[in-house]
Design a protein around this nucleic acid. Structure first.
Lengths: 340, 340
DNA sequence: ATTAGCACTCGTATTCGATGAGTGCTAACA
DNA sequence: TGTTAGCACTCATCGAATACGAGTGCTAAT
């Protein structure tokens, strides 16, 4: 168990290092006016904290830097909600005041504000499309051999894909088919769609349309492709302003990672509801081993998603957590009242 | 007018500098076995070429580097088609062999291969949606107050947007309205849609539906939003491997530019058909003043778009032009035969 | 007209010493 | 026994001095 004094010192070191990016020395700590003990005492305590694994040195005679364990402890025990300026609060709330109809647009705006306020990078994981339910099914023929299939979900998302019509397909069958499909598939979630098409719709359709087999298989191709939700980024280049990214190799690794939506998706998906923090190696990825990811999920009813902020491990956790919590509540709120 | 010897020297300098990124000295040039004259002679010629503005020095006693004017001359007069390895040719053609139904998918694949083969960054400008024509108009109600409007264009693109329904709107009017709109708007290009809605559709609708005014205005909001085509990137991080981007500031500027689709759109849009090259300051943008952009437009019938490659001014023009030409023809071909 | 020879320039890499922030330890102190 | 002043020591950073070498421009010889 850490003594009160050790807690104080750890807190100062993290806070100082977060804002200065420079190793923190004993003299610097003693300057804080609520610190009553001498640099020598602080040095002793720091040596202990280092032995316990909360601090590190960059070289033999440098100041101290929080270790991952140090950040973890700070985040778990020392975090205290920050007071935000009225200006910033109103900036956040301005998004929710505007009457935005489309959920997607609302969330994107939030992500932009989030990176602006934090100066970190925001990753926005779109709502899991697979959970949405079919509201309407539509097929629009384009030519003799191709048509576009459209699926509207219950909350307004539209999925569409061009597919080829089988030879000898009778265009007049389309309407019949669409009716049957709408009848059968209403309310089915997109993730179930694939199977429902094969198991239920196919047999019914076969009775009415003789090329049904081929069409359904084309449609099944359509439904199989869209496994992942969309990923949206804001403030991607903010990371370049962080001193820890003065190294081009790190920049490259980071940017390459950010280009792979599927990897980003799995790295940034929240494991639980609420706000979570993953520090450094906890992220399990080389490209962001010196980064922390803070995720927040939000939602109301069917419409939910998550926002993540990524910055260096030396990130302003207090501020980010406070802002994200505000954002999370606001978004959930806005989404649930949207259709009243 | 340049002498034959000057042409030879300019060619060697560009070629060498392109592959080595180091200023080229007289000795190095004389080593080429088809160069028959001595370093001293070469130095004299280089001094002349510098006076003419085709070459530059990085400092008083360094080798020569092509100037923008030098590249321009090289590109205009010295470019000769490269012979590509059978391996690479087949890699390109593999895309077109696969039977891909959706034009967008096909083009994206091409862009990926393009950046792989060139090690530069590919920017893909989607077909100009505004030119497409309405094939089908559809409205799907989501709740009492909202609905999603869907526009399918003649080549299978789907535009959609959620909009609010006016109070007191009678849901049963939707079908009537959709019918009228489909009737009136079939074949209208998206860029005209906005006005047609206001000028033609509105008056007709008013006769049948008393809330038509409000609905049309909601719809007009939908049609006004989608001014720009989509932009797709491949190999964004390739630029980081170029030695000219070892400077973090340049990286930042470049990445920031690439995040702004609308700016990228206007910078990379080809002015003419065929292959064009814009060198350095010809691009008129600070962030890419040391870059060259090679654009190629392709298309068949209604479906056309353009691909651009961006790299440092010290880029392998011969190779890129050869590859892009192959790609351009392939794409145009594939698109025109797609629906046969 | 071409080229060998040579003095000169300038970027790069290396070494060396000075500086200063910061530590750990010891001994004095309350 | 916990705290602190004092001091020797470490190590990153910076600037000056130096050597090195690739490359040029000029002159004079071919």
């Amino acid at each position: 168990m850490l003594t009160n004094r050790q807690l104080q010192i750890l807190q100062v070191i993290v806070d100082d290092f977060v804002s200065s990016a420079q190793p923190v020395g004993s003299r610097q700590i003693s300057k804080k006016d609520w610190i009553t003990f001498s640099p020598a005492t602080i040095r002793n305590e720091m040596a202990d904290l280092e032995e316990l694994g909360f601090l590190e040195k960059t070289h033999t005679s440098s100041g101290r830097v929080p270790s991952e364990k140090g950040y973890r402890f700070y985040v778990d025990h020392l975090l205290q909600p920050q007071i935000m300026s009225a200006d910033e609060v109103s900036q956040i709330q301005s998004v929710f005041k505007r009457q935005i109809v489309e959920a997607e647009q609302l969330i994107k705006e939030s992500a932009n504000i989030l990176s602006e306020l934090t100066t970190y990078t925001t990753v926005l994981l779109g709502p899991d499309v697979q959970r949405h339910k079919v509201k309407r099914f539509q097929i629009v023929p384009l030519s003799e051999e191709s048509a576009v299939a459209i699926i509207v979900t219950d909350n307004g998302h539209v999925e569409n894909r061009v597919f080829t019509l089988p030879e000898g397909f009778n265009p007049s069958d389309i309407e019949k088919m669409v009716n049957i499909l709408n009848d059968r598939l209403l309310g089915v979630s997109l993730q179930d769609l694939h199977f429902k098409l094969e198991l239920e719709a196919l047999s019914v359709l076969k009775q009415h349309i003789h090329t049904a087999d081929a069409v359904i298989h084309s449609l099944m191709q359509v439904t199989s492709g869209q496994k992942e939700g969309k990923v949206y980024y804001a403030g991607k280049t903010n990371m370049l302003n962080q001193p820890e990214f003065h190294d081009l190799n790190k920049v490259r690794l980071f940017m390459e990672l950010m280009d792979k939506d599927s990897q980003v998706q799995s790295l940034f998906k929240p494991i639980d509801t609420g706000i979570q923090i993953r520090i450094g190696s906890e992220n399990n990825h080389l490209a962001i081993e010196n980064c922390s990811v803070i995720t927040a999920s939000f939602g109301a009813g069917d419409e939910h998603g998550s926002i993540a902020i990524i910055g260096p491990t030396r990130m302003d956790y207090q501020r980010v957590v406070t802002i994200m919590d505000l954002m999370r509540r606001g978004l959930s709120n806005a989404l649930s009242h949207r259709n009243d």
